[in-house]
Design a binder for these strands. Structure first.
Lengths: 232, 232
DNA sequence: ATATGCCTTATGTCTAGTCATAATATATAC
DNA sequence: GTATATATTATGACTAGACATAAGGCATAT
């Protein structure tokens, strides 16, 4: 029986403390919600919220009937904000500028069909564009859009607004896959980003789907020294 | 007045749909929880949960009294799992092997003191180690630990268990900063990771604190072709 | 021994309230 | 006009219940 004042954040703290001092060692099952609610002198819903959030953070593993366990390998979850490039640039105080380099409709190449599970003759809109911060190259965007899946695509000219921003506003999506990697600058990329050939380039790739239908594949290549940060 | 069956996920869907079809354009204020609860025929708590989760996802911006607004720049949040290297390697089916390369106590160098806000004569334990997947280099770990902040550090020899795994099990932390970037392989790194000098290396850096006290700084350099993926 | 279905149980979700708190808007005092 | 106190209001947190659902375990029939 603990003192009266117990919020769900307090409960989270207590549970975390018990995990850290090995009262509840990794892999062990912890008492049920009802029992904990009694111990903490609060409603089960309050315990539930605390436990749910700890499970979302990867600290606990919950299963109906099976109960709640302390996660064996403390997989931490880092949350990254994925803002629009424009916002990201503007938030540094720099002026944002956008340029469309290429825009053309293709039959999807084999590698793209494989990535997006597209049919043999699927048409895609291929766009290449640059995002600048105070006129220094910030990001090169290489994007393919599945034309069949995106309504209204013919009404977008992408000369003033980037495909990312357009899609975010016009096109809903349900699933996203993001990958981060380090790549080598080839001739084209070096030229666009004012790099030397062979320089490392921080790259993110994104695929989005709308309930199973692939919408778009995009590769973002960042300028020299870019670093994606998060704190939590 | 909508049909009866309304869960908080349904409400999220409806709200998202209204944002996407511009019923509630970006920046606009949306009806209060009580009003929405009436419309959807459910309790305010249910609307609250839907709205809270949408706010956590960066879709909405909520403030007491001010009300709930559609976020102007739809900042999406990507969640990455940060597992232990060992688990990451083992999950690919490969055999994990760990080697300690160096272990020595130093007076913290200036750049580290600046990063961790350490005093002039603070002592740090510097460790370098390798993580292998099936005997191919997977990750090089370069780690500095603030000795004053970590109890029991003298009892850890780090020959069989990596510092990351040891710290996760022994040392609580409250704040983490993670940065991702692409770097160039220098001579040492190329040697450790079986790369050529100048090759791009995917790098993550991590700093952790325990309620304001810096615990450790670590830089992880990954082998060729590594890519950090997430899906949500 | 094995497969099927039922029962139990812990979590998941929900309701209809209450009280708390932060931020705005308004009224008041100077 | 400006600063300060006050009322209002929307979200935040919580309670004590309820029913839903998934999954483990047990009993039964084959």
């Amino acid at each position: 029986m603990l003192p009266s004042k117990n919020s769900y954040t307090d409960i989270k703290e207590i549970v975390l403390a018990r995990i850290r001092d090995h009262t509840w060692p990794p892999g062990s099952i912890i008492p049920g919600e009802i029992e904990l609610a009694e111990e903490f002198g609060c409603a089960r819903a309050t315990v539930n919220r605390a436990m749910r959030e700890l499970a979302e953070d990867g600290i606990l593993d919950r299963k109906r009937k099976a109960g709640t366990r302390v996660n064996k390998s403390p997989v931490r979850h880092a949350k990254f904000a994925i803002p629009l490039v424009r916002i990201e640039v503007e938030s540094t105080g720099a002026a944002y500028r956008y340029t469309l380099l290429n825009k053309k409709i293709f039959i999807a190449p084999a590698w793209l069909r494989a990535r997006l599970s597209l049919g043999d003759s699927a048409e895609v809109l291929h766009l290449q564009c640059m995002h600048f911060a105070d006129n220094t190259p910030f990001q090169f965007e290489d994007r393919w859009i599945n034309i069949d899946a995106v309504h209204n695509i013919e009404n977008a000219d992408f000369t003033t607004i980037g495909p990312n921003e357009w899609l975010v506003n016009e096109m809903p999506f349900t699933d996203v896959e993001i990958a981060f990697s380090a790549r080598v600058a080839d001739k084209k990329l070096a030229e666009y980003l004012s790099l030397s050939i062979g320089e490392p380039v921080f790259t993110t790739e994104r695929i989005t789907w709308l309930s199973g239908t692939p919408i778009t594949f995009a590769r973002f290549s960042f300028g020299r020294g870019y670093s994606l940060k998060t704190r939590f």
